[in-house]
Write a protein that binds this DNA or RNA. Structure first.
Lengths: 230, 230
DNA sequence: CCGACCTTGTTCTCTTGTTCACAAAGTGCC
DNA sequence: GGCACTTTGTGAACAAGAGAACAAGGTCGG
């Protein structure tokens, strides 16, 4: 399959899981790992692991497995994690503030570089080491700080406008937490995290469960289907 | 398709989006909606909308469209949203605290009924109107409060144990925010929200974009693939 | 140097999901 | 009451993804 360059969407979404898993085993001193073992740790099928890794033009060694360090280098490069990507959080309400405080971003190469809000009473105040800037300053901030990713944490009503402004300012990667449908032009990439949606999906399957397991098979609700998001 | 009862996973994940959209148009006084219009508002294909709704045993009216109220009733029932589902948040760190404060859950029928932590210095303190309880109290809390859904907001290291304890206490719906692979028995439903993963996926496509749009077509990175998570 | 053993890379098949296209069904004007 | 028009419901083609299975390739003991 010599270094093929079209990586399927589903594979891209699994690479970060492999990456995290490999980092863990690396700190345990493991230097080589088989697809079987990696699959077990990552919670997926071994054949899938091998197929996914083969897209990286991977060099596993038959009979042995994959070199952990080498795999980490390849994967980091493929995911573009060899550099930091500064993030701007737009909307410093409950959720935005929480995300700003959440250390998990900076640790993983996504430093929070700016907090942005449209509310004049918030602009100028300091939060978690950042002075909140006005949405109108967005283009300047993108230039100054090299913002690569925008996180929308506004109420639903403002989400589309924020997305439009982010794109206009040159930010082409957007993560939307607002419970609203947002569209962006083709050159931009948008992903969403919808907390209420997740709970509602759980509600669907949870309700099904409570009608009794004897019926479940008949209704066709299988364990695989229920857990497919993981 | 007379009232068929196997609803595909992909459809289940879209029902909440339709639901939200319908609630919006309902407040605008709209009583009837076509699949075309609903598709536009929900950001999906019209044929997909019709097929999804047909799984509800839906009664649209040809030549007219769907009755908004009726659709909302059917959909709420199907998703199990005719009652509240009390939620327990396990892990009151940065993220857990944020989720506890986030009003979006209670509003949508998922009241936060308990905050749980394993840290003795946190147990007994009050946060957002809730006294933080110890993880050991979980079974009692499930019985007392009818906890239906558990949210894991602990560090990665503790996630699996919390999941095990939730399942043991009778909670079969789990939403995992911890950056760790968690597995549950088949009778339980697990979904995950992985913030770092989302950013890493954005990084992948963002990096691709920066090599120039002329190459993009050749590399096969299409707008559809990039936006498929939305 | 050879053979037993192990693990990868890849092909093939099956399942799931998406989209098109069109017949069926109902509305409302004339 | 009939006809033109609209929109649904669904069959069928197509695309994407998952997983089983196996040949190819490499290791390591003897």
């Amino acid at each position: 399959m010599e270094r093929q360059r079209r990586i399927p969407e589903a594979t891209v979404a699994r690479l970060p899981v492999y990456l995290r898993t490999l980092l863990e085993v690396q700190t345990d001193g493991v230097t080589t790992i088989s697809s079987e073992r990696l699959a077990e740790l990552a919670g997926v099928n071994a054949a899938k692991v091998r197929k996914d890794l083969s897209y990286l033009g991977s060099f596993g060694t038959r009979g042995v497995g994959y070199d952990v360090d080498h795999l980490l280098v390849q994967m980091s490069r493929e995911l573009g994690l060899t550099r930091d990507w500064p993030v701007a959080i737009v909307g410093v309400g409950n959720l935005g503030a929480a995300l700003a405080n959440y250390g998990g971003f900076g640790d993983r190469g996504f430093p929070v570089a700016a907090l942005i809000d449209a509310d004049p009473t918030k602009v100028g105040t300091t939060f978690g080491g950042h002075t909140i800037r006005h949405l109108d300053d967005l283009p300047a901030l993108v230039d100054e700080l090299g913002i690569a990713i925008g996180i929308i944490a506004t109420p639903a009503a403002g989400a589309q406008e924020v997305a439009d402004r982010l794109v206009a300012a040159g930010v082409t990667s957007i993560l939307n937490f607002a419970p609203a449908v947002v569209t962006v032009p083709a050159q931009a990439t948008l992903r969403k995290v919808d907390l209420a949606l997740e709970l509602q999906v759980l509600s669907f399957y949870g309700q099904r469960d409570s009608i009794g397991s004897s019926l479940r098979e008949e209704l066709g609700v299988t364990a695989e289907a229920k857990n497919s998001a993981v």
